[in-house]
Nucleic acid binder design. Structure first.
Lengths: 218, 218, 218, 218
DNA sequence: TATGAATGAGAGTTCATTCAT
DNA sequence: GATGAATGAACTCTCATTCAT
């Protein structure tokens, strides 16, 4: 993992874990709600009930605080995905699994997810490219083995570029999660079914992928 | 087309076209670069070399200027797509056509495209939902006939929801254009071919769609 | 009547009377609603539907327009009071008469009255002292004969200074009209009688004056 | 005393008293000179020689500063009147006492008095009605016992409405103080006697009231 | 004579950051 | 180590007035 220009200070790291977490959580919340630029350090310290000077002793500036908040989130995502991992299924099963556990994650930590979308969305987010790339690499690293073995075993068309496959999968994940955040997933396809129709929708989406990218025929 | 609460003033509409366009263009540029909230009216008038008061005689407020800029862009996009339209091809041919002409458009007006992504991305953009919806409706309106006749003629699977098809197509368009903006299209798949490899990439993407959504077999 | 530094221009005086009156009326309205300083020339021309430049050709500046508006009002008041005048009654009857006709006036021309209160109230009104003094002089001029003959005929205490009598009468007029503007006159004494109780209230007020200042005993 | 939506911040309350008072005093001065709307926060901080941001850490906005300034003044007035109070005299004696101590107060704090007149005068003053009402209530609360016992003991006419009596007394107080502010009190009745003629004038005024409202005959 | 586009100073307010205590 | 008062540039928006057409 790269070192940032501005790591949290020792003062911060020596804080009791509870307080450290509260600070990170409030930061995630603020940055998620307003995006980096419009987020207000004032509001953060107000919500925390600590002095502005204190925060500036933990982090050299707004940017450092932001990076720390994002990092925490990003580690959490990876941990969650890894722990949910069921290594038995094929590539398409994995995609479907990530859609499911991603959905659960964003229902559980809406603030974290909001923060992530903000970073994706707002170009003036500091270190944006690095942060995004890290997620992309994680996704590649996660799906790669399944993709490789899929191609090896004849499950997946070998005439389609890996990069293009990642491109399509990430496009669908992105859009799916973005859509999720707003309203109910089912609502996005016009019907008013409750959340449990989620499985059907994911199945349909992945089904199309399976046909388009796979060798299986209908 | 709906009327907004705050149209540009007569003063603005009576301006010589050249000046009017310059103003819109600079606004698009600023809003594209910073997003609505962080964009600065100060900077805009500075770039234009006009007095702040003047701009406020053209538009009641920042929001009105923003809407005007976005509208100009949005009309231009529609006009471009419509004029490029080749009504002969099937649904997938149309998707491929839109990818092409969209690519050309964003190379020609990168600022406009930036603005669009900002709107998609930033939730505190005023009237965001309306602006996005309008694009979505345009896309539905454009593709719908081809989709319908495709299903009728047996070209396209009828067991896949229309909404889901739109979802996938828009997801790919979105991501494709977003990727385009950064570097060369070819760069996004790891190879350094010049732009003329664009056709191949689009063909591959649409090819996968054609298999996944269509009844044609490989 | 004194000449002002800035009379309305010939251009204005040559305007058709109807237009001239509309301009004055809108000005009265604006200055009444916002007071001199906060009144907006922009709004006035907007309401009138004429060009800002035009207004500035009629009046050299905001101040000149204001004076013209106030003058018109002030002439109207004097005309009204004079035409209502019933020279038969004694001093106290006259006071009561002015209270009545003042009340009717302010119900008929609330904007004019509002303008007057603004002038009384706001110290940064240009030429305020002159405008107020003119009203005071009018009041003195109006009441003086009745006061003199009242003292001569033994109706009014001669041991009370004329200036003090004017002071008291004007204080009551002022407060009475100020109170009137807000709600119903009757409301100001806590009872909810309709406007026709006005006569009783005025009678009571003047009654107290009559006892305090007069030689009549209860 | 009611709490306002926006009290001064802790930051302000923790300031050394001297500085706190300076700020209030300058605010009173500015609001008194220009009225609420035209008063300029810029000018206030300039006069104080502090940064604009500082003032906004003390008070959430212009309105809060205004209310704080008015409150300070209003408490001071009440304290002054109460401490001058001589509970021995009758109702008319009390009126005369308030005229005297009011006069002294406004000579001592002319800016405070100016502010008060502004509030009375300018309808777009925020919370105007509440501020005025509070003064009226204070006046009622102060005079009421004397008025009641006056009526009980047969000193005051019982056929005159209490509300009407308050109306007259307040009208005279208002006008008296307004007149005072401009020049010397004596000047207002045309003679050039020094301030010590004040007593005579007040005596005359109250004398008329005593006759008009009282049962005592000349 | 009438127009209305242009002006620019000044309004209230916010905010990341510093530093003496 | 913690505090929080102070800062001042930048923000959006308003307005009386001018002047070329």
């Amino acid at each position: 993992m790269e070192k940032y220009i501005c790591e949290p200070s020792h003062t911060f790291l020596n804080l009791p874990e509870e307080k450290r977490l509260r600070i990170i959580r409030e930061a995630v919340c603020e940055f998620g709600e307003y995006g980096y630029q419009r987020a207000s350090v004032n509001r953060i310290v107000q919500r925390l009930g600590i002095a502005k000077g204190s925060l500036y002793q933990y982090f050299t500036n707004k940017e450092a605080l932001f990076i720390a908040a994002f990092d925490h989130f990003s580690e959490l995502v990876k941990k969650t995905v890894r722990s949910d991992r069921d290594p038995k299924g094929d590539f398409f099963y994995q995609v479907s699994g990530v859609l499911h556990s991603g959905y659960l994650f964003l229902k559980k930590y809406p603030d974290f997810f909001l923060l992530y979308s903000r970073v994706l969305a707002e170009e003036d987010t500091p270190h944006r490219e690095m942060l995004i790339k890290r997620f992309h690499l994680f996704s590649v690293e996660y799906f790669r083995p399944f993709l490789d073995s899929g191609k090896a075993s004849g499950l997946i068309r070998t005439d389609v570029n890996n990069a293009l496959i990642f491109f399509m999968v990430e496009a669908l994940l992105d859009r799916f999660f973005r859509e999720c955040r707003g309203g109910s997933v089912s609502g996005m396809f016009g019907n008013d079914n409750p959340d449990d129709s989620l499985t059907q929708i994911i199945d349909q989406l992945v089904g199309v992928l399976r046909v388009g990218l796979g060798t299986t025929r209908i």
